[in-house]
C-alpha cells in the first residue's frame, strides 16, 4: 500500500529509559517487554523498537552470536532503513552480543 495511507511519523519516540512509553505505534501490552539491564540497553531499545516490538530480540537469542547480530543490525539498517549511526551500531552490537548471544 502506498505512502499516502501511512500515518504520521514516528519519531515521537521517546528515548527515555522506559523506552516503549512514547512510541506512537506501540501495541497494547508490548511495554511489558523489556530488554536486559546492561550498558547500551536504552540506546538499543530506542533504536530497535521503531518498527517492531522488542520480542524480536530475546526470541532470536538462541539463533544469535556476535557475527549474527552484526549481520542482523546491518540488515535492519541497509534493507529496512533503520536510522542507526555507525557509532550507535557498535554500541548496540556490544549490548546485543553481551546480553542476547545464545547460539551454542
Amino acid at each position: 500500500m502506498k505512502a499516502a495511507r501511512r500515518r504520521a511519523p514516528l519519531l515521537l519516540l521517546s528515548l527515555a529509559p522506559a523506552g516503549a512509553c512514547g512510541l506512537l505505534w506501540a501495541a497494547a501490552g508490548e511495554e511489558a517487554v523489556r530488554l536486559k539491564d546492561a550498558p547500551g540497553r536504552d540506546l538499543t531499545t530506542g533504536r530497535c523498537i521503531l518498527c517492531h516490538s522488542l520480542e524480536y530480540i530475546p526470541s532470536n537469542a538462541p539463533a544469535m552470536n556476535r557475527a549474527a547480530w552484526q549481520k542482523s543490525i546491518q540488515k535492519m539498517k541497509e534493507r529496512f532503513g533503520a536510522p542507526i549511526t555507525d557509532e550507535e551500531a557498535k554500541q548496540i552490537l556490544d549490548y546485543l552480543d553481551g546480553s542476547y548471544s545464545g547460539k551454542s
Binding site: 500500500m1 502506498k2 505512502a3 495511507r5 501511512r6 514516528l10 518498527c51 529496512f80 532503513g81 536510522p83
Partner: peptide, 14 residues
C-alpha cells in the same frame, strides 16, 4: 499483489 498493510518507515520495503 499489494495489501493494505504498510511499513512504519517509508524506507522499509512494502
Amino acid at each position: 499483489f499489494d495489501g493494505a498493510d504498510s511499513p512504519i518507515l517509508p524506507a522499509t520495503p512494502d
